[in-house]
Design a protein around this nucleic acid. Structure first.
Lengths: 140, 140
DNA sequence: GCTCTAATTGCAATTTAGTCTCAATTTCAG
DNA sequence: CTGAAATTGAGACTAAATTGCAATTAGAGC
């Protein structure tokens, strides 16, 4: 299904569905959770398919553009992504101790965003609430 | 006042208050709004005082550590900071068109954070809500 | 005010995520 | 099948930020 979405997206822009792009997409959707580009690159190499580092980064941009992948946050080290298909909108709590990322969704937060935007004459297109602290495992 | 806070912080760790560190602190507090390290560095050079790029970065870390400066967000280009003394907690709306950063504060959001943390057995120490979209000037 | 030592500085080299260039290769519409 | 246009990989490059180190400086104790 993701493949069809991607193919249509590419087709609509006169771009081609190459084996490298397919490999990146499949790898992204082969696991759950968050990932860094370098990690994705190494998984692709290990999995037998091949795509250069440059292609991984280029494909990742395309996937973000067509909405199949989302940039979650930016850490000291670099970007963190997640796939979005079959994965509804949510926000994140990040543990300062173990680095774990916990997802949550809050209806109230969604409404609050609209309210805040309206109050400030801002047209919100997306938001990201990131709560930092200690997770269940790391609280003392 | 910021100077006293910084001096005490340094003293408590056996560190010294050098002219370079003073220059960085003064420059940070000489204007309002958000800044990037490179911009700060160039302002310091222009202002007549001197501090190397390395010292600017090193001092910035210390200022963050003692709470006088806060890292606002991380863009493609790098970190963005703001000073915090006499500047209460708030969140940000960032315009995708012109890059403007608008600050806002919402009591409801603060309460919501606590609520969400409790529900997830998470001990929240800070949060950052970033809303992206179009600001008043850039809406069409 | 002077001394001494640990902290600090500046510079240049280094690191690291990510982008870019370009010749060779591949896709796919016709 | 063919050929124009898109894509690829390898490595050069960029820019932010960090680090190593020899020379310098702050400031506690006298």
């Amino acid at each position: 299904m993701e493949n069809i979405i991607f193919r249509n997206f590419l087709g609509g822009k006169g771009l081609k569905l190459t084996k490298e792009r397919t490999a990146v997409l499949n790898e992204v959707y082969s696991f759950h959770g968050h990932f860094e580009p370098e990690y994705l690159y190494s998984r692709i190499k290990d999995s037998g398919s091949k795509a250069s580092r440059a292609s991984v980064y280029r494909t990742l941009s395309l996937l973000v553009e067509c909405g199949l992948v989302k940039k979650v946050t930016r850490t000291e080290k670099g970007n963190i992504y997640e796939h979005t298909y079959g994965h509804t909108h949510h926000d994140h709590m990040i543990c300062d101790i173990c680095g774990d990322i916990i997802e949550f969704f809050s209806e109230k937060l969604e409404n609050l965003q609209d309210e805040i935007c309206e109050k400030n004459s801002f047209i919100g297109s997306s938001h990201a609430l990131e709560i930092r602290g200690r997770c269940k495992k790391c609280r003392m």
